[in-house]
Design a protein around this nucleic acid. Structure first.
Lengths: 145, 145
DNA sequence: GTATATGCAAAATCTTTGCACCGCC
DNA sequence: GGCGGTGCAAAGATTTTGCATATAC
């Protein structure tokens, strides 16, 4: 079920990207990480491993990986976040923890049940996201240290 | 059904905002406008009427009006957009034209039908938006000039 | 009259671009 | 060896902040 770093890299190779150390590390990071990450968080993580790393390289790689469909992008009120594209090949939506940005999948798609679209409206895409607190974060919030 | 400029202003007064000429104009603009507007678009519109208008005033007013619930904010891939809050007092979602940003309402709420949330997950809010082309924009795209 | 709103300027973010050098294939 | 990737610097774009002046109440 889980996407591995190798699968991410294979996909990048298939699309003609060169595999640098940095990109291997990025693949590994996103393969392990269950949460959606901001470019800044990725930069900070990578910066620890690659002294002298520049912001623009991180941005470029995130953008490229998104364009190649390896990463998914979430546009949230507190900024843009990335996570690995779900390997699941059926259509699905996401549940996102507002505290730790962990994400889960929902199989249910509301489009099947929608009626009453405006006359002549051509649907191109849709967004359905559920926000809240995951079990861990909810517990932590109920019992503050 | 449609929210009027007066209603917007009354709400702002109720919340303790002073009603300046600019804010009257903003209320009028959003009352008339069926589309979601970027801060930049609002600035350009207002700038024509108020020479010497500054960007920060527009931002401040948009933010204030959003905080007061007079405006709704959409976080889209191509930027933040605002439109007047729907007067409808029942829960609903939006259909948005990707070309002209016109918006419509959908009454259907997918949360009623969702099952299989992760164990212990506390839902706080959700987003359900349908994107596509409205009848006019779809027609224009099919028959380019 | 007083508190709030505005305009101006500047700063803080976030993101992109151009270019020379380096490294994957 | 050649093309694509990276680092550096700089520019853009967007949004925020501080303060003096103007204005609604």
């Amino acid at each position: 079920m889980k996407v591995t770093a190798e699968e991410i890299i294979q996909e990048m190779v298939k699309q003609g990207m060169r595999i640098t150390d940095q990109r291997k590390t990025l693949a590994g990071l996103f393969a392990e990480e269950g949460s959606a990450l901001t470019p800044k968080a990725v930069y900070e993580y990578m910066g620890r491993l690659y002294p002298g790393l520049s912001f623009d390289t991180v941005y470029r790689n995130l953008r490229l990986m998104h364009e190649m469909g390896v990463l998914e992008q979430f546009v949230l009120e507190d900024g843009i976040k990335f996570r690995v594209s779900c390997g699941e090949n059926h259509h699905h939506h996401h549940i996102i923890c507002m505290n730790c940005d962990k994400t889960y999948s929902v199989t249910y798609c509301p489009m099947d049940a929608v009626s009453g679209l405006p006359e002549g409206f051509q649907v191109v895409k849709h967004k359905f996201e559920i926000y809240g607190l995951c079990e861990d974060c909810a517990a932590r919030r109920d019992t503050p240290s």
